[in-house]
Design a protein around this nucleic acid. Structure first.
Lengths: 284, 284
DNA sequence: CGACGATTTGACTACAGTCAATGCTTGTGG
DNA sequence: CCACAAGCATTGACTGTAGTCAAATCGTCG
């Protein structure tokens, strides 16, 4: 029931070029632009840059490993389409997923500060990944300062999500952890425009969920079964439906505040410094 | 055995002015400059700015709450001296510490993206906190771009630490969690120049440790007792000594890589963009 | 000295893990 | 078109790590 397309779990990108434009593929460029626009207002030049970037991106099949922990890496990676997970493998064999990545997000951002990936990145679905070499990133500071500011703010946003996971793992019981994660993913998909009327796409297996929540596959299954029996969620095939949002939120302490950076995030860099009254970020 | 100075747990800063210069206080300015210099090379102007900032900082007593989760906040806070914790309180009464803050680090960085604090910040020791209003932060993009880049890279660094905590909470057993945390704090203190010959300052109570590791006070005590009996650590009063680093690291999977961003972090902003061969960051 | 906070210890409990077997989908190849 | 293989999901029985509750002790400060 997991991956519709079965392909070898690793190797080089299969296609390079104008990517992610299959019949049912969401337009990667659009998702990327929208995400940046949530944090900063983009100039026409910024949009052009991002568009070209995505056009040169590579397509990866499901379960493909995009980055490997510890391996030197001098690039930023931009996920232009599809879902991915960032995770760390432990010597004991366990695996801790650190975040779920949606289209428009940066993969392995820490490469800029460490020159290497601190964790691995794996595609959950077929997806599109663009690369920004470090030198190009450095150049962006002068050529597209707004994009750099956007990356900075996106970093703060993602840290808030990671932080919420930390709280879950540290102080919430199993049922709440799962509920919290489901609500978070649902909310993020809605905000990103990935949700459909029928529900939210959900390409994670129960093992993936276990690796996110620090639980075991067995126990995640018991929790999900319980949630279904209580008519809290519908989760079948690759789609999630939240049936009783209020009760799930109450029981898990979910407060979507951290998923909503204050909308009017004005330009933070360049000439707007100082007195400007923080214009609302245009949503394209 | 906790705090040498007993003071009310909240209220306004007691002193404002040239702060943190008590007989046994480490020079706050120096710590701040050294931390930034780990990530970017500072200009004389950058150093002057930071120096002035710290001179105008406020002194807080131990256990003072500096920031409160959910409360609107339009400032960056720079911890110029002392120790602090960032944490979240749960409806169930529990508390999850998200990070330990050492001198030179930013408190509540997410305020820039959210306009409010997502978690509380409390002093562990007496300490010095400077404030950078949002407008001033925006201005920094033009006046001191290197400092902004420094903040960006420090953000990536801190995310790596948070990530490591997440891994601990999700997939490491109690003993390893505690060991990993102790090694991390020891390492960070060494790198920051806070460690003494006799050992590392350690102002956390066992309850604090429990709130960091997602354990209970009782269990943390059992783990610490066990570590002492096995001659792995010495932990008394306010000082930690690692007696068997290798064994602790092996058992907890501690790899200090994430605490060591690649040293030659050249200027990332401004005119250096592109081909420059990444000069080594001068350590002042 | 007395009080408060921090630490230590013990007895008992329970949430989640482990191990193992079975059932269900889905896609592929005969 | 059907059967089989592979991966994923489900269920049960038992275990163990860490939590809970409670009391005693220690240390420091006032």
């Amino acid at each position: 029931m997991q991956q519709p397309i079965k392909l070898p779990h690793d190797g080089r990108p299969t296609v390079v070029g104008c990517a992610g434009r299959g019949p049912d593929a969401v337009d990667g460029t659009d998702l990327v632009l929208r995400r940046f626009a949530r944090f900063v207002s983009l100039t026409a030049s910024d949009r052009r840059y991002l568009t070209r970037l995505v056009e040169a991106a590579a397509v990866h099949p499901p379960r493909r490993t995009v980055l490997t922990e510890g391996r030197p890496c001098d690039c930023l990676h931009l996920l232009a389409g599809g879902w991915a997970v960032e995770y760390r493998t432990l010597p004991t064999g366990g695996r801790q997923v650190l975040r779920i990545r949606l289209a428009g997000e940066i993969l392995g951002a820490e490469c800029i500060a460490y020159g290497a990936a601190l964790q691995s990145v794996q595609m959950l679905t077929k997806g599109v990944v663009a690369r920004i070499p470090r030198a190009e990133f450095v150049a962006l500071h002068t050529t597209h300062p707004q994009l750099v500011t956007g990356l900075h703010l996106m970093g703060l946003f993602e840290r808030a999500i990671l932080q919420e996971w930390t709280i879950s793992l540290g102080r919430r019981p199993a049922w709440s952890r799962v509920a919290h994660l489901l609500l978070e993913l649902d909310e993020r998909c809605r905000v990103s425009g990935l949700a459909r009327i029928s529900g939210t796409p959900f390409p994670l297996t129960q093992q993936d969920l276990a690796d996110c929540t620090g639980l075991t596959l067995t126990y995640v299954n018991r929790v999900l079964t319980d949630m279904r029996r209580k008519r809290m969620i519908g989760l079948r095939q690759q789609e999630l439906v939240i049936l009783n949002r209020d009760e799930l939120a109450r029981a898990s302490g979910f407060q979507p505040r951290y998923l909503r950076p204050t909308p009017p995030l004005g330009p933070l860099s360049g000439q707007d410094a100082g007195a400007a009254p923080r214009p609302v970020a245009s949503v394209l």
